[in-house]
C-alpha cells in the first residue's frame, strides 16, 4: 500500500511539474511510462526529494502527496519532447487538428528542451519521423519499427553521460520494443476492422508467439535493471517491470488463470 502511494506521489509530482513548466499543454501529455523513468533515475542517482501535501484540480476532495526531484524535471522535459514531435507528426500526416493545437501550445517551451537536450531531441525527432514514414508507405516490418521506438526510448533513458549510459540505454531500448509491439498487437483487431495501418496486419503472431516475443523484450530489459545499484524504491520498480507492464494485456496468464481473462 505504501509502495503504491509512493508511485502515485511521483506520478502526481510529475504532473505538477508538467503543469508548472508547460501549462495545461504539458499536463495533457502525461504518461505512466515517464513516471517509471522518473522513479528509475531517482533510485539510481538518489537526488534530494521534494515532498509536499496538496490538492489537484482533477481530485479536489482529497489531499495527496507530491514528490519531485531533479529526475522529475528531466521526465517532464522528455514527456513534452515526445508529445511535441508525436503531435507534429499527427498534424503533418493526418492533419489532425488536435495535433496542431498541442504542438503550438508547447512550441516555445519545447525549444528550450531541445536546446538543453539536443541528442535526445534529435533521436526522438528522427525515430518518430521514420516511424511515421513507414506508416505512410504502409511498410509492414514490426521488427524495424520496434527497434526504432526502442532506440527512441533508449536515448531518453540516458539522462547523464556516465557509466550507467549503457545499461540505461539497453533498458530503454528493450522496454521501447515491448511497448511498441504490445501496443501494435493489442490494437491489431481494432485496426483490421477499421482498415488502419498496423505492422502486424498481414502476418500476426499466434498468442504463444506473441507472449514469447514480448517476454523476451522485458526479460532483456529487466536483466539490465538488475545490474543497476538501485536500492531506493527497487520493489516498486520490480513490480512494474515484472507485473505492471503486463497490466491490461491478454498474454500474461497461464492456462489455469486464462479463464479470468476477459
Amino acid at each position: 500500500m505504501r509502495e503504491y502511494t509512493r508511485y502515485r506521489a511521483f506520478y502526481c509530482g510529475l504532473c505538477r511539474q508538467l503543469r508548472s513548466s508547460y501549462g495545461i499543454g504539458g499536463e495533457l501529455t502525461l504518461t505512466y511510462d515517464m513516471t517509471f523513468l522518473v522513479m528509475l533515475l531517482n533510485g539510481l542517482y538518489e537526488p534530494e526529494e521534494n515532498r509536499r501535501q496538496g490538492r489537484c484540480g482533477l481530485h479536489p476532495l482529497t489531499k495527496r502527496e507530491f514528490i519531485s526531484s531533479e529526475t522529475t524535471a528531466y521526465g517532464a522535459d522528455m514527456n513534452v519532447l515526445l508529445a511535441y514531435y508525436k503531435q507534429l507528426d499527427d498534424w503533418q500526416d493526418d492533419h489532425d487538428p488536435k495535433g496542431l493545437a498541442l504542438s503550438q501550445m508547447l512550441k516555445r517551451k519545447v525549444r528550450r528542451v531541445i536546446g538543453r537536450y539536443p541528442e535526445q531531441a534529435e533521436t526522438v525527432r528522427n525515430c518518430l519521423k521514420q516511424l511515421s514514414q513507414m506508416e505512410q508507405d504502409r511498410i509492414l516490418d514490426p521488427e524495424k519499427a520496434a527497434d526504432l521506438f526502442g532506440k527512441l526510448l533508449g536515448r531518453i533513458f540516458c539522462w547523464k553521460d556516465d557509466a550507467w549510459q549503457k545499461p540505461l540505454y539497453e533498458m530503454g531500448f528493450y522496454m521501447g520494443r515491448f511497448i511498441y509491439l504490445a501496443d501494435a498487437l493489442a490494437d491489431l483487431e481494432k485496426d483490421r476492422k477499421q482498415g488502419a495501418y498496423n505492422p502486424f496486419m498481414e502476418h500476426a503472431p499466434s498468442p504463444e508467439e506473441a507472449k514469447v516475443l514480448l517476454t523476451t523484450c522485458m526479460a532483456e530489459c529487466a536483466a539490465r535493471f538488475e545490474t543497476l545499484p538501485i536500492l531506493r524504491d527497487v520493489e516498486i520498480l520490480r513490480n512494474i517491470l515484472y507485473a505492471g507492464v503486463w497490466s491490461g494485456l491478454p498474454w500474461q496468464d497461464d492456462e489455469e488463470r486464462s479463464k479470468d481473462v476477459e
Binding site: 517476454t215 526479460a219 529487466a222 536483466a223 515484472y242 507485473a243 500474461q252
Partner: peptide, 21 residues
Amino acid sequence: QNNYNNYNNYQQRQDQYRGNG
C-alpha cells in the same frame, strides 16, 4: 546463454510478483 538465463530469471520473478498480485 545470457538470453536464455535472462528469460528464465524473468519468468521466475514474474511468478513472484504476479503471485502476490
